[in-house]
Amino acid sequence: MALSESILSERCLEQARGLVSSIESGDEGKAVDHLREISRLNETKMFQEIGRLTRELHDTLVGFGIETEISELAEHEIPDARERLSHVINVTDQAAHKTLTAVEEAIPVCSELEASASHIEIQWKRFISRDLSADEFRELSREIGSHLEISADRYTKIKLYLNDILMAQDFQDITGQIIRRVITLVQDVEDKLVGLIKLSGDLDSDLPKATKKPVEKVLEGPQVPGKESATALKSQDEVDDLLSSLGF
């Protein structure tokens, strides 16, 4: 049971008087008992004060809507940011692999063309300086023929690989949009924590206005796996179907 402050003070005074009289009468044992009781009463006062401050802080937080906002942050927004950032890792990982694969596939194709062209060039120089036998010339013209035959096909392949590398760079846009949202969230957390510190630092003066819940943005940016909006379409085909149902 919490004791009122006046009762506590009265009891302290009582014990202090007892302490003085027991010291005067030389009763050490009793004096120690009085001292113990005084410190116990003091502790009671201190705990009551802590309890009061805690209640006050809690009431203020509730009153300013900060407590619910902070629990919203802890329960939803921070895990949400974590999932978004994990998705960023996946998207950048895929882009890097797509690029590396294209490079790994393209390099041998380039080497093949390079080797074939260098060999032809050497023989061609010998032919120009009339240094080639008839048999060697027949071999050279066969080589030129097959070089030309593979060239068009190989250049088409290289262009496809380059195109893969080009398209893989779309990760920067996708992840950039996701990271921007996370930055906004971090800013929001910072503002709320600063509000909380101000509140707990000075409960009575100049209370900050309740921080506004961020306006729910209509634009969501890239859908994140596991976090898709209920009405989000899953593919270009679904988008096309919707548009054609609208007369497109």
Partner: peptide, 13 residues
């Protein structure tokens, strides 16, 4: 765009 919600596609249409 990365916006893929149905209501947005309808709005654009």
């Amino acid at each position: 765009t990365a916006e893929a919600k149905k209501e947005q596609i309808v709005e654009a249409a």
